[in-house]
Design a binder for these strands. Structure first.
Lengths: 222, 222
DNA sequence: ACCTAAGTTGTCAACAGACGACATCTTCTT
DNA sequence: AAGAAGATGTCGTCTGTTGACAACTTAGGT
């Protein structure tokens, strides 16, 4: 281990990075993938082949790589079971209620390294609304979700973020695990035209209440 | 097994295997994981740590490993986009219709190495029905789905499998991709008491029709 | 408090096998 | 046809990974 990595396995890291790249891209050629992770094509090919061999990736007749059945299986399993599933299923009713009472889209987000990932949603019924943010990530810094996830728990914010998307306002509250740490954040996103004004208080408290209710659920049952 | 593989990366393979193990287990300790993949704990720890470092895995205060946010992000992404998503979304209406007309649970399955994975479902409304098979795998040999997925495309079968679960009957039909190869299988599963008798023809043709309709959809648009 | 099992950190030598330059073979483009 | 861009195959070198071992630190159980 020469350079800056004091721990880790180079090849594994590269393979994972490649996997990430392919999954994120949806479908990608060898060359593009190699370029994306900055590896010689020969090396990239070897890894992609290995991943394909294990079913993590698939390859269409044109040589494009895409997600394979093995990964799919894991994806489905991880979303049906595991701690994350508890979170999302536990959050579902609260998100639904939030979306219903506020009329906006409600999201559940967790932290991933230096970003936040939206892992569940209950969408607004309105025409103008947030859609399709599940699976998306936003930076921690400069966003309401971010500061809430990194905060010590207390914060509840309503901000016109503007960082990620213009004209978007968010009300966010932290969700605590049984041990008192912040494990997720519930947020309501909507056009700043609707969230900035009168509804502010209503929405803010609604989010707070939902987050606290979810936290209680996580503490209480099972 | 040391060297039957002419290509591949040991560490990457191990890391992936570990990842698979953890995801499948939902939550697992270092020792158990190491035992599961047959590695010394020191090596397993190194890998698990690396995976944790990259966010693929998470660790609770008790040292248990579970799926992490990065993997979650990939899981959600892979299910929202990518070729597999096309399949499932394209299949959804057909599965729903199948479930509705037959009254049984309808599944979409793809091949993973020597197994079949159920990747989507429309569940029966009846009390006695198949549930929760999404993400599950069954062997290719000895099952109706298996033979259909490995077949050259023509086969449509109604069998009392018995292999995987007793008293379960299945009607399966192959779904063809634009290039004429079998890319998936649509199957209806239900108690053999209901599927063995009179409804046989109805169900069989319904499945066949659905599979052909889906194949056509895959050929047609885009 | 004791004892045991599980997890953690560190070291290190040896071997496996990952690396990537390069040569070759396929497609597409023009 | 010619050329370019991409995909694949080959191979010697060197690097990174491995796993045994030992020393501690928790965490549980009695």
């Amino acid at each position: 281990m020469t350079s800056s990595t004091l721990h880790k396995s180079r090849s594994a890291e590269r393979a994972l990075h490649l996997l990430d790249t392919v999954v994120t891209a949806g479908s990608i050629s060898l060359g593009d993938a190699a370029r994306a992770v900055d590896l010689p094509t020969s090396t990239a090919l070897r890894h992609l082949r290995a991943l394909e061999h294990d079913g993590y990736l698939d390859r269409d007749p044109h040589g494009m790589f895409s997600v394979g059945p093995t990964f799919l299986r894991l994806a489905l399993t991880s979303l049906r079971e595991g701690p994350a599933a508890h979170l999302t299923t536990a959050a579902r009713p609260h998100l639904d209620r939030l979306a219903e009472t506020t009329g906006e889209s409600a999201y559940l987000a967790v932290r991933e390294r230096s970003r936040a990932v939206y892992i569940a949603t209950a969408e607004s019924t309105r025409a103008i609304r947030h859609v399709g943010w599940v699976g998306r990530t936003v930076p921690l810094s400069g966003t309401a979700v971010g500061t809430t996830l990194t905060g010590d728990g207390e914060a509840t914010v309503l901000r016109n973020t503007g960082g990620v998307e213009p004209d978007v306002a968010a009300a966010v509250a932290p969700v605590m695990g049984p041990d008192g740490t912040v494990v997720a954040a519930i947020s309501v996103l909507g056009p700043s035209s609707r969230l900035d004004d009168t509804s502010t208080d209503t929405v803010t408290t609604a989010v707070l209440v939902a987050a606290e209710a979810l936290s209680r659920d996580l503490r209480g049952p099972t």
